[in-house]
Structure formats: C-alpha cells, structure tokens
C-alpha cells in the first residue's frame, strides 16, 4: 500500500530527472554546434591581391584554393583545389600548406608545413601574390 503511493510519487520524480538529464545532453550538443560556428567568425585581418583588385576578410579558420568549397576561391590553374589554410591562434595567424602541387611561399620562402604570418607579409600561392594585412 505504502509502496504503491511511493511508486506513484517517485515516477514523476524519475521522469523529471530523466528530462533534466536530457536537457543537459542537449546543452552539450548545443555547445558543440556553437563551437563549430566559432570557426566562421570574421576577424579583423584581411588578405588582398597585390594588384589590389580584391580584398578578402579572414575567418578564425579560412581555407584557400581553387575549389568552390574553399572560403577564398582563387581561379588560377597553378593553385591547387585546397591549397592552404590560415588559422588564428590567440592573436597570431598561421598559414599551413595543404600539400599543394606548386607550394606556398611567405615573403618568397617556401614553407614546409606551417608558418607564422605577420602584417604586410606577401603570400604566394602558385602564380598569385596576396598581401596579409592585420
């Protein structure tokens, strides 16, 4: 008899706890999705063609290449489909070559994998020269 009453009351408590658990699980999922969006935030840094024809804003993580999927699309036969990636870590920016055919150069020097880039650095991808402006 007492058991029946206890069970009746506690079933609401259990359902409440289960949904509190679910709320927290979905909160983690929400934080995850927000984390993915963080990569798409625009930073103050810019990348412009040396000829001055176009200027691009950089994201927290920016991909450069010939493919349509890249954030910055450069239509040149000397640029690989996914050529390079620029990431922001703290206040600094780093460029990484994504095993491109013709390589990535910073101020005329070919980078091995990852290199730091600073204001007014000239980045060469294939036959295209870009200026990094912080």
């Amino acid at each position: 008899m007492y058991y029946a009453i206890a069970s009746q009351i506690l079933k609401y408590v259990l359902i409440f706890l289960i949904y509190l658990f679910l709320y927290r699980v979905f909160k983690i999922v929400y934080m995850d999705i927000k984390g993915a969006r963080y990569e798409r935030q625009i930073t103050s840094a810019k990348l412009s063609f040396l000829t001055g024809e176009r200027t691009f804003n950089l994201f927290e993580v920016t991909t450069i290449g010939r493919s349509e999927e890249c954030d910055i699309v450069i239509e040149s036969p000397y640029v690989s489909a996914r050529h390079a990636i620029i990431r922001k870590r703290g206040k600094r920016f780093y460029i990484q070559d994504l095993n491109s055919t013709n390589g990535t150069f910073v101020n005329g020097k070919r980078i091995k994998r990852i290199a730091k880039i600073t204001n007014n650095d000239v980045i060469t991808l294939g036959d295209v020269e870009l200026k990094f402006i912080l």
Binding site: L14, L17, I18, L20, F21, R24, V25, I28
Partner: peptide, 13 residues
C-alpha cells in the same frame, strides 16, 4: 561541468 551534472542525474535516477 555540464557532462558531470548529467552524470549526477544518472546517479540519482
């Protein structure tokens, strides 16, 4: 922290 809270709920259930 949220994960730990979820584990606490599992414990109380």
């Amino acid at each position: 922290k949220t994960g730990s809270k979820a584990m606490k709920n599992v414990f109380w259930i």
